[in-house]
Design a protein around this nucleic acid. Structure first.
Lengths: 206, 206
DNA sequence: GGGGTTACCGTTCAGGTGAACGGTATGAAC
DNA sequence: GTTCATACCGTTCACCTGAACGGTAACCCC
């Protein structure tokens, strides 16, 4: 009895579709029109059943408040949009999301961190950071203006290009180190601009 | 001139807040009530200005269609909710999101993969997979029922617990290998149940 | 001081909208 | 064959809602 019928599933999918494409839930009449119903009651019946089955919510008496309830609802947290830059030239992300080339959307619970206006993402090129288990193609999420702790991964501006390094405190002095035996650099941090501190990482299947 | 005034920002934030908390945009009168306006025109004026400045959209003539436009709008793709299991006992994720302990929400563009009902996430314990640059605390996203390719990371059921291994084809025969010199196991894949193939990974700051 | 912008008020109206009335047809279950 | 759930129709009503009318006050800029 708690199973959805074919028609009910169609209606649920349509409501979901509307929310995703236009961002707004359909009105009862719009649902009727879409399915060719000539009566409002038909829609009301379906909505009532879907609500009884716990897969749909609405605020009575108010327009367009239909909302599909997912089983994961109770776990879902806020989703943040983080701009993905191709490369960060000297300007730092002050002038904001103008030259973003993409967008990483992820919930803040999984990220373990509430993004700010100074949070951004970069795609990793090369394997200079395999020592920190970061590989080519990974997307790293960074926070600009954050004070790095010893051992943190940071993005630094080297030769007009963002490069990932490990931030180290050696006798109180900050240094940057590449995590790859082929590049055993150790650069005094003062000489460089630190663009951001790594706060997260996303990897997709190769 | 394209800057928002304090009042305009307040109204924009309120609209955003409504969408996030109740999932529905406020009506003009609800905005008026919230700010103590006794006239509808006040709200209409603000909405008109916010629309002119390109930070707000609405579908004329239809109720509750206010939508905040983000600068990242054009890059944003659909966000998928993936159940995060604490552990997967023998049953496999057939019985669905009942015993999920969390939810990973991420956009499908970043994930590089459109999740299905058989997609799930696991938290990595231990460093048996550091050879594949997967560390303790990482959240791996897996697809159940997918055929693994040579070298793919898979979750297998060992001693009633999900363990990550590398899937290898050795002279046509499938094997599972732990990516840690301390565990040089090489197990014929037939003896084990492969619960999923890794399709993504999320790491948060330690 | 005049013009432009912002920020409000009060009112009216047409139409969108949820909700409820009562009805029919179909198929599965017992 | 009766019962029940689903799936539709047609209509009406109150009120929510967007949109537009015209007006006032404050502020900044030139």
């Amino acid at each position: 009895m708690n199973e959805l019928t074919k028609r009910q599933r169609q209606i649920l999918v349509y409501i979901q579709e509307c929310q995703r494409t236009s961002g707004v839930a359909p009105s009862m009449r719009e649902i009727a029109e879409h399915f060719g119903f000539s009566s409002m009651t038909t829609v009301m019946d379906h909505v009532r059943l879907l609500r009884q089955k716990g897969v749909l919510e609405n605020q009575p008496g108010r327009a367009r408040t239909l909302r599909v309830v997912s089983p994961l609802e109770k776990f879902r947290s806020k989703v943040a949009d983080i701009p993905l830059y191709g490369a960060i030239p000297a300007g730092l992300p002050e002038d904001q999301q103008q030259e973003a080339k993409g967008c990483v959307s992820i919930d803040i619970e999984t990220l373990g961190f509430k993004p700010t206006a100074r949070t951004f993402a970069l795609e990793v090129r090369g394997d200079s950071m395999i020592g920190k288990f970061i590989v080519n193609g990974d997307v790293v999420i960074l926070e600009h203006g954050m004070t790095p702790r010893n051992g943190d991964v940071v993005a630094a501006l080297i030769d007009n290009e963002s490069t990932l390094k490990t931030f180290l405190l050696n006798r109180g002095k900050p240094f940057l180190r590449a995590e790859n035996p082929r590049y055993p650099d150790l650069i005094p941090a003062q000489e460089l601009v630190i663009q951001g501190v790594m706060v997260g990482l996303v990897r997709k299947r190769k």
